[in-house]
Design a protein around this nucleic acid. Structure first.
Lengths: 339, 339
DNA sequence: TTAGGGAGTGATAACGTTGTCATAATTGAA
DNA sequence: TTCAATTATGACAACGTTATCACTCCCTAA
């Protein structure tokens, strides 16, 4: 069993001190050209690769960033992951995906992660971005982090966000402009900070149009596809069936479309459906979905940038960076039939 | 700027040697109960957390596994990732997502990854599982790895796989049993090792049924949604339109359904569509897709297990582990109209 | 008693880097 | 030339762990 070559092996092969080898490998000045060549040749011949643990011991950054998400979202952080990965790749950083169960002792889970992995920073995705225990733990352990789409305490630590209420307001406005007056709303889970503002934006738009949504038309959901099916069935089997349904996220909106299909209701002829987030699935479903684009990919790329910058230079003060949303009209919405 | 406490800090606070502290923290025997308590109290009071880099220096495993994938698949390794994550979480391991561009110098990209990250092993997803440069590089650097769904050299290194040809044969058989005789096929990209066996299985089933697919009914694709739309348009605008289309993966199959919708062809009445993989999107699309289930999640979980086991104990010889596929009949297929 | 042995400790040396400082070699100006 | 500056190099410590081995106890069996 041959151990892998170290700096000292390279040094003795190149007939120099190991410190000189270190200098060459780190591109430091004050090394003669000829010596530099000799060292590089020796390193190459031995197949030398630096020992990462040893580097870390002297305080070098790990170049590893963690993406923290709630296991309830298993498989639904794709956009976030891509955004973070793109930037990591550019900067020579790496991304570790860290699922935690928000219903368990999150503090302990985070402690475990941090005690077994050397991370330069963490990206927090919803709903963890608003979890008080998560934030308190990270602050206590002095771990750098950026929150994605938080809804409270935006000055407390760096974060990236859009104005959910305003976005929901805009999308509702779009439905109203199409001529819809009876609009159903599928809510997000109460524990999820995004749920409130989205409903609020919806209500405000309705209110401003002089409409009062029936309590029966505002149904619960929990951001899952299945809850979207349930909600869809509930809304679409009513006598006073809404002519449009706005689900607080895309997954539920897709569930609503599935429910509509079950019931033989064509979209958008019999009912219009709109979502929120503009996920990949919304764009490329059988029937492209009208939704509000939340630029999660860019937001996470920016979050990654913030972490990398903070690791490299001196820590800047907490920055909150807002992003623009965009209503994406697609095929799942149309004016109601009688108009 | 306070450095974080070390073992020695704990030692002096607990009035013992730092070696004893190490013993306590690692649960080694030969420590008096009273001393153990004193040490633990001290460690707790100081908020001591072990330095991971230092541990690594002495040869401890990093408990970090890399999931390698081709950037052409950005966002499409969800199933693989979930499988790997589940097992990592159970075992206290972590997962780093590592995209590489297969069209570039993969060897160098891998060298870079390995020189900046201490990994206990790598999981290779298609098409990297069959990339000769990738495999050669990993063998040269003696990096433990498991290949997911490779098609060549299954004895060369540990891997998990299904029999793609047999699976395609079975799905084609299902379509034939429904009564279809004119079946279109959308191929995968030639560079992707899964493409060949799937087409071969299709051909063999047709052949066995005494049918010869028209060359015009076997169209190219590259595993993307967009190429599925193209292929769909091409097949569905022909005079001798097939009554069923089998796409070599789900993404393309969904593209075909989108093309059908464009053309006003209802599924499965006017045309049946089937895919391959049973991805999340296939299960939960507006119209649940008939497909062959390749248990990617379980396969990757098993791959992760193999890596973890190899890290812990002595390395076993290369093992190839086969998995069962399953035809998943759903709503996108039905007997052809005239039957 | 007294050797033998195990349980409980602690000194000290790795591990493979980077950082600090001293020294040797070279250059440049007087 | 000769001294001073600069450049090139090396010796050694430091980083925070775990591993090795030696040592001190105390208990037991001869």
């Amino acid at each position: 069993m041959n151990r892998s070559p170290t700096i000292k092996d390279v040094a003795s092969k190149a007939q120099v001190s190991f410190k000189t080898v270190s200098r060459v490998l780190n591109g430091e000045p004050h090394v003669r050209e000829s010596v530099r060549d000799r060292v590089l040749t020796a390193a190459d011949a031995l197949g030398y690769r630096p020992n990462i643990a040893a580097r870390g011991l002297t305080g070098a950054p790990s170049r590893l960033i963690g993406l923290l998400y709630d296991t309830a979202n298993y498989g639904f952080v794709t956009e976030a992951e891509i955004g973070a990965l793109l930037r990591c790749r550019e900067a020579g950083y790496h991304l570790a995906i860290e699922p935690v169960d928000a219903r368990d002792d999150v503090g302990q889970q985070i402690e475990h992660i941090l005690s077994s992995l050397r991370l330069d920073g963490l990206i927090l995705t919803p709903p963890l971005s608003d979890d008080p225990v998560v934030i308190a733990t990270l602050e206590r352990l002095k771990v750098r982090h950026v929150r994605v789409a938080p809804h409270a305490d935006r000055d407390r630590s760096p974060c990236v966000f859009i104005d959910d209420a305003e976005a929901a307001f805009a999308l509702t406005g779009y439905l109203l402009a199409l001529g819809h007056a009876t609009i159903g709303f599928v809510q997000g889970p109460p524990g999820h900070a995004a749920a409130g503002p989205r409903l609020a934006g919806f209500r405000r738009a309705m209110d401003q149009a002089g409409l009062v949504p029936s309590p029966d038309h505002v149904v619960p959901g929990d951001f899952t596809f299945e809850s979207g099916i349930q909600a869809g069935r509930r809304l679409l089997t009513r006598d006073d069936r809404p002519t449009a349904i706005f689900a607080a996220n895309d997954r539920m909106a897709l569930g609503v479309t599935a429910a509509a299909r079950e019931l033989g209701l064509s979209i958008p002829d019999a009912v219009s459906v709109a979502g929120f987030d503009d996920t990949w699935a919304a764009r490329r479903s059988w029937l492209p979905l009208t939704t509000v684009r939340q630029p999660i990919e860019e937001m996470c790329a920016a979050a990654t940038d913030m972490l990398i910058a903070a690791t490299a230079g001196e820590t800047p003060e907490p920055a909150a960076r807002g992003f623009d949303f965009q209503v994406m009209p697609r095929d799942s919405t149309a004016p109601p039939k009688g108009v």
